[in-house]
């Protein structure tokens, strides 16, 4: 599976729902193959940002640019969006069916993604017959099957137990580094954000803006989860979220720009 990431440039993004301004002058800038974790309180607009990037939600002002523009982003929603009436195989195959790919190409691709995601032997199962981790793998597999340029993940592991979260986080990190795709994830989990994001953007304020940014140069390996740098970053992000209550401050090590 060979993929290549796109660069993502968001500038001056603003979005309101009714009379309430949710996002104001949001800037994001990612080079191809980078990963960004958005972390913030519930309702701060993380999902809205991802939906705008996926082209699923209109915005009021600003610019969203993916380069090259013909590449497609794949979005995995918080509820995973698996169709209960489709089996694992059919859910995985669906993006290829919609793209008009022939049966032979679809079979080859689905088998490859099943092997990558550890989903062999589950072809005929329906989503309700899967564990939380297996569902998550199917949703990720379905997002990756079209060779996306950008992978957008909304609270990817929120419904999972701690052990499954960690194992899937490691799996995702190895997929991301192997595939070289650009990844943006929104999460409540500070540990998840710090582990998976090369850049961690803390969102806060009303309307939402980036209140602090942290860079994570650490490797995405199991050993990093106990590394001093990892624990230190977790502490800093937690402090940024807790102390400011999401309010922008000038004391953070980076300005509010990603």
């Amino acid at each position: 599976m060979i993929m290549s990431g796109a660069s993502v440039k968001v500038s001056g993004l603003a979005k309101s729902f009714g009379r309430g301004l949710i996002l104001k002058d949001l800037d994001l800038n990612l080079k191809p193959g980078e990963s960004l974790a958005l972390v913030g309180a519930s309702g701060c607009g993380k999902t809205t940002i991802l939906k705008i990037l996926a082209g699923l939600c209109p915005y009021d002002r600003g610019e969203v640019k993916l380069e090259p523009s013909d590449l497609v982003p794949s979005f995995v929603s918080q509820d995973l969006g698996l169709y209960p009436w489709k089996t694992v195989w059919e859910n995985l195959e669906l993006p290829l069916v919609l793209a008009g790919r022939d049966k032979k190409a679809r079979n080859t691709k689905v088998k490859t993604i099943q092997a990558d995601m550890g989903l062999e032997g589950l072809d005929g199962r329906y989503p309700h017959e899967l564990s939380g981790g297996q569902k998550q793998r199917v949703a990720l597999g379905r997002a990756l099957i079209v060779n996306p340029s950008v992978l957008l993940l909304d609270e990817p592991f929120s419904a999972l137990d701690a052990l499954t979260r960690e194992s899937l986080g490691l799996h995702l990190a190895s997929l991301w580094s192997g595939l070289g795709l650009t990844m943006i994830l929104a999460t409540h989990s500070i540990e998840e954000a710090v582990f998976l994001g090369q850049t961690i953007a803390v969102l806060g304020g009303c309307p939402t803006e980036v209140t602090a940014v942290f860079r994570n140069p650490g490797p995405k390996t199991p050993a990093f989860l106990t590394d001093r740098l990892f624990l230190d970053l977790v502490r800093k992000v937690r402090l940024a979220l807790a102390v400011t209550g999401g309010q922008k401050t000038e004391t953070w090590e980076k300005s509010g720009r990603v």
């Binding site: 082209g55 699923l56 794949s74 979005f75 929603s77 509820d79 969006g81 669906l94 993006p95």
Partner: peptide, 16 residues
């Protein structure tokens, strides 16, 4: 119908 089903479909549909 859960709105997520249509939204997922829109996300999976190639192109506009």
């Amino acid at each position: 119908l859960e709105p997520g089903y249509v939204e997922t479909f829109n996300g999976l549909w190639p192109g506009r």
